[in-house]
């Protein structure tokens, strides 16, 4: 299910009179169980590509296939179902639901999936502990620091065991130690559960974890290299 294929993806945005190219004929294949980093300067198209793969934004042209499903041809409800059951998102800004506690935010996706409290509560507590937020489950996002909020967002993205995780600058607000812990968690999930990761990042330390590094510029892929991860998962 988690292999991703994009063919001739294009997307433009209008800003006043100016037309900005988000994606320019981007074609890419990401195999199941990959650990891919998208790098490039701001405005290079990383976030646009992640949004298109996740069905959050419709491309102007081209095809996107996840597993056997054509994402670009799906209706809104089908896209929502696909995101709910298969994709975990980590957004650039933490994007937690402000009225829910850390625990409720993590539980949200499972709750929408219809899972019982008895099933979702222990899973949410365990993942919160795993991202270093033990004892903070009852805090509202406004009572958490930026780094803590990002960890809740990461916990929410992976708690329902998606087959594909799309992460946009997941460590942007984390300190070095927490970033490393988080990336270790990602690598472990990738290796143990064969979860596919596509991570957009500026951070060379994060790129060092990736098995494949795709460089983007002006909406185009300018480099696509397999690499030996410089940093392996701890433990």
């Amino acid at each position: 299910m988690s292999s991703v294929s994009c063919k001739d993806l294009s997307k433009t945005f209008t800003q006043g009179d100016e037309i900005i190219v988000g994606l320019d004929q981007v074609s890419i294949n990401i195999e199941e169980g990959s650990f891919v980093c998208l790098s490039g300067p701001s405005g290079s198209g990383k976030t646009t590509l992640l949004n298109a793969i996740g069905g959050l934004d419709k491309p102007d042209g081209g095809e996107i296939t996840i597993g056997e499903q054509r994402v670009d041809q799906m209706r809104k409800a089908e896209l929502a179902d696909m995101r709910l059951h298969n994709i975990g998102f980590v957004f650039q800004a933490y994007n937690l639901i402000p009225v829910l506690t850390a625990l409720e935010n993590v539980e949200f996706v499972m709750q929408v999936q219809g899972r019982a409290v008895a099933e979702r509560r222990p899973a949410a507590m365990a993942i919160l502990e795993e991202v270093g937020l033990k004892g903070m489950q009852d805090r509202l996002p406004s009572q958490l620091s930026g780094g803590q909020q990002q960890r809740v967002a990461v916990a929410r993205a992976i708690v329902s065991k998606p087959t594909l995780v799309l992460a946009d600058e997941p460590t942007a607000n984390l300190d070095t130690k927490t970033s490393a812990q988080l990336m270790d968690l990602f690598v472990e999930l990738n290796e143990r559960r064969r979860v596919t990761f596509v991570i957009a990042t500026h951070d060379p330390r994060i790129m060092a974890y990736c098995k494949r590094l795709i460089k983007m510029q002006d909406g185009k892929i300018v480099a696509d290299d397999l690499q030996q991860p410089a940093i392996a998962a701890a433990g």
């Binding site: 996740g54 959050l56 809104k76 409800a77 929502a80 179902d81 696909m82 995101r83 709910l84 059951h85 994709i87 998102f89 957004f91 994007n95 937690l96 639901i97 402000p98 009225v99 949200f108 996706v109 929408v112 999936q113 929410r156």
Partner: peptide
């Protein structure tokens, strides 16, 4: 609006 957009992004259907 952000919260509603986020709920959609996380997989809540428009009808929901």
């Amino acid at each position: 609006i952000r919260e509603i957009g986020l709920m959609q992004a996380l997989g809540m259907r428009p009808s929901s």
